[in-house]
Design a protein around this nucleic acid. Sequence first.
DNA 1: TTAACATATGAACAGATATTCATATGTTAC
DNA 2: GTAACATATGAATATCTGTTCATATGTTAA
Lengths: 126, 126
Amino acid sequence: MKTNQDECLKADQTQLPAEYEIMDSSELFKVLGDQTRMRMICTLLHDELCVHDLARIVNMSQSAVSHQLRVLRQAHLVRYRRDGKHTWYTLADDHVRVMVELAMEHVNERNLNDTSNGNGGDDHDG
Amino acid sequence: MKTNQDECLKADQTQLPAEYEIMDSSELFKVLGDQTRMRMICTLLHDELCVHDLARIVNMSQSAVSHQLRVLRQAHLVRYRRDGKHTWYTLADDHVRVMVELAMEHVNERNLNDTSNGNGGDDHDG
DNA sequence: TTAACATATGAACAGATATTCATATGTTAC
DNA sequence: GTAACATATGAATATCTGTTCATATGTTAA
């Protein structure tokens, strides 16, 4: 709460996450930060699905979905198993599930607050 | 676990999040998916900071930081208060904190697994 | 072998985005 | 008023990213 004009720095950088943790986690969020991939992930919340189905559900080309599945694999967000001609994809672990749930909570609370509160009052477009 | 070749679709789309929830949450993740913004957020995990300090800590120009703060404000990830010449920024709520922690867990577990396991075995570059 | 299906991937292109530069706004002290 | 400081922002630009198209790989069935 103090506000010394000349030396306003008060960050305790010793508690900061390691540089690689920041880089890796921002990379992870970047992967989640795409509509198509998010739709794929949400579809995989409840089911194991093959590429063909994923493409149909998110209404994208097989190629686009396959490209994005590669991104999701590299981020360790999905697993897959081969079975004949199909490749079946599932979410990799529960972190993903929980992160998605948290994001939904955040978004929904924000939508509630947007009608009533006056915090900051900045964030408009234009 | 069934693998009917002709009708492989088995997604129960009734449980899917609403379209706006998917759009909004992917937008939220997109905001978190940038190194500079992540470094700013991690710095704000423990302290209330002014723009000048944030710029110094993440080693970016005042302008760049200010532009990114705008993005963080619009995503409701930070709050701010004016005090004289300074504007002090803090994290908006605990969702952010928890999401960051989860992401850290995910990347750290993944880094552990990368040395030993053989799951999938795909995700390489090139 | 061929044909049909399922998935993966490289190249190219269009659209998005982060930074820089210059400048505007706003505050404090004189 | 001026000067110095703190922050915000528009425009330009270089870089990144997602999709499409064409094609390659791999599986199954004949």
